[in-house]
Design a protein around this nucleic acid. Structure first.
Lengths: 200, 200
DNA sequence: ATAAAATTGTGAAGAAATTAACTATTTAAT
DNA sequence: ATTAAATAGTTAATTTCTTCACAATTTTAT
């Protein structure tokens, strides 16, 4: 069955929401409990989960631990993902140091830049490599996700370099639409400000 | 008329896309030209713009300069917005130094933190203030947008502090759903990784 | 043991968003 | 001057997504 894109995105929300319930020592939650925290409708939660199976018990709700592990499996965070950050500027550095990624099984294992000034420096414990070494290092370290954190004008070039080194997907922080064979998730910072600035 | 949320978001995309056309010296573009760069359908572009007026000329297309200024006006980036960053960690620092914001009329004018170690230090030319001074400084500097770049567990508290100081909207980088009277735009970094990790 | 309450899973209805198709206008070509 | 090509704006059709409403199940209370 075709899964709606918004459903996949919400799965990530459910996952983190459930981790919090788990931290709080809650054992069972209802679709209503989840929905309330995320400001959505309970029916949405149930429908989303129903695409993947029957995880709850009528009259009782969902076993938190079980659902966490089910969703982890569905969205693919039951394994670790090796991540490379391309661009050792402010944003790239911040991401390399961002604890939220490692916590959710995304491990930054390499950082690249084309600026020789930066190559060899350490960021968050990782030595910056030259972008020319992308292919070799990506294969050696089994990198699966690349983060594009370079300026607008080099983003497309980088996207093309990424295509041929065995990487499986791109998280794009640059404010341009990348043309790539790989799946791309855009994190468009400026766009969020602009959307906020719009007043109906 | 009610404007679809996705339309508002795409307006920001059109805006930046048109700025690029302008930079390239292009004077007129068709809905097809725009759509091609953004990987969407031309009819989508026309429909979106039609919510706000008739900006094009049949047979010819849109005057780039004119459309840029129309859209800037619609989404509210024809004026400057004063921005405060809450949280002087890695992400907050990166945002304070991020040139893309200033370029699009979002000017970071204050940075706050609750850590006395950080207060007084300079980040991107701006001295970090204590969060207790938020109200005073926000009013003095006429801050309209707050960026939440604090850890998960303090995000909601910060959101509540923001509510009562005249700020009009929040860009939230923390991975929790904020409960706020103000409009909130979420930039959910972890979620983008998780969405990417999902393989149908 | 029975009834009431809680809650899931789902088919159907409803709402929202996208896309196609068409009309009107403008420009360019012959 | 006429026709063909390009293209915006708009109405209608289609698709996608969300919500409702209810049967099915389980638990809790009496």
């Amino acid at each position: 069955m075709k899964i709606p894109k918004p459903t996949v995105r919400r799965l990530g929300l459910y996952y983190r929401c459930l981790l919090r319930f788990k931290d709080e020592g809650v054992n069972f939650v209802s679709s209503q409990d989840i929905a309330h925290r995320l400001n959505i409708k309970p029916s949405q939660v149930r429908k989303d989960l129903s695409y993947f199976g029957e995880f709850g018990k009528r009259g009782l709700g969902y076993n938190v631990k079980k659902l966490v592990s089910e969703i982890a499996h569905i969205i693919g965070v039951n394994k670790e993902w090796n991540v490379a950050i391309i661009g050792a500027g402010n944003l790239g550095s911040a991401l390399a140091n961002y604890p939220g990624l490692a916590k959710h099984k995304f491990r930054v294992v390499a950082i690249f830049d084309n600026d020789n000034e930066k190559v060899g420096k350490k960021i968050g414990g990782i030595t910056v490599s030259h972008i020319n070494e992308l292919k070799k290092i990506a294969e050696d370290l089994n990198i699966e996700i690349a983060v594009v954190a370079v300026p607008e004008n080099s983003a497309q070039i980088v996207a093309e370099q990424i295509e041929s080194v065995g990487i499986k997907g791109i998280v794009n922080f640059s404010p341009v639409k990348l043309r790539s064979k790989l799946p791309v998730e855009d994190v468009d910072i400026t766009l969020s400000f602009e959307t906020l600035a719009y007043i109906p």
